[in-house]
């Protein structure tokens, strides 16, 4: 990023989060924040706890310890539907779409938290409810245009190729008009062209809608290109936090990724 970008206050702060399943520790005393308007990347080797962290943020997992502050409200744990209604949308590492539904219907489900008119009017399909449905439909069409998926509007998503499914999933998240968008490996398994498209969408979302984005990604080139700040996790612990440049030159990060021999082991082998 050449241009100096300005960000607002933290929209999300996670404080001293620890999470374990039985005896296995997934996260240990992790703290970081996400500023309004930035693209924040979470990276780390496999099993570092990245996905667990996202799941804690949107309430799928409940940490044993720590606090989460979202939009000024501090709680011990989030609940998925509460998180969704407060403006957190997400995508999944292994695509979680409604396979039997069309692209359009899938993205419409993203509007769920925005629909307020009562069931009776919806059922009759008249008056205010009809008006509401049309407004939602309009917004969804807007999202479809933005993601350039007009051609697959009516196709059941189970039949779409992988890259397209990833895009529909992003569409569903965008339809909720999120303030914080969590992306779990949005470019995993994509070819170069699809990756470039996805990068462009992520940056455009951030730019045009001002949406704050927290993303997990494995492709280092991508991460360094699109993110403003990076958190690095390793074995459930935070080992670095800063701009891409700072993180790249951090000794712990280099060791975590390259698997450098520990000093004492080195000393031991020299003694022999």
């Amino acid at each position: 990023m050449d241009v100096q970008r300005k960000f607002g206050d933290p929209i999300l702060e996670v404080n001293d989060i620890s999470l374990s399943f039985g005896g296995v520790t997934a996260l240990e005393n992790v703290s970081f924040d996400v500023l309004e308007g930035e693209v924040r990347a979470i990276i780390g080797p496999n099993g570092a706890g990245k996905s667990s962290m996202l799941n804690v943020i949107n309430g799928f997992y409940h940490p044993q310890q720590g606090m989460i502050t979202y939009k000024g409200e501090t709680r011990k744990q989030m609940r998925p539907h509460h998180a969704a209604s407060r403006g957190i949308a997400r995508t999944f590492q292994n695509i979680a779409l409604f396979k039997g539904m069309s692209t359009l219907d899938n993205i419409m489900t993203g509007r769920n938290t925005k629909m307020k008119k009562n069931l009776f009017w919806q059922a009759l399909h008249v008056g205010p409810a009809k008006q509401e449905e049309l407004e939602h439909r309009e917004y969804v069409e807007h999202v479809i245009d933005f993601l350039e998926i007009q051609a697959i509007r009516k196709t059941p998503v189970g039949r779409l190729p992988y890259g397209m499914q990833k895009r529909v999933e992003l569409g569903r998240a965008l339809a909720a008009e999120p303030e914080l968008l969590l992306l779990d490996e949005p470019m995993a398994g994509m070819n170069l062209e699809e990756k470039e498209d996805m990068c462009r969408f992520v940056l455009d979302v951030n730019d045009q809608f001002g949406t704050t984005i927290a993303l997990i990604e494995h492709d280092m080139g991508v991460v360094m290109d699109i993110s403003d700040r990076v958190v690095v996790l390793d074995y459930g612990k935070k080992i670095a936090d800063g701009t891409p440049d700072e993180v790249r030159s951090n000794q712990d990060v280099i060791e975590a990724y390259l698997g450098v021999v520990q000093d004492d082991e080195l000393a031991a082998s020299q003694n022999n």
Binding site: N58, F60, P80, A84, F92, A96, N112, R172, A176
Partner: peptide, 12 residues
Amino acid sequence: DDHQAALSVGIS
């Protein structure tokens, strides 16, 4: 169709 996805769009 998908429990997790349903939860993530705010369906209880």
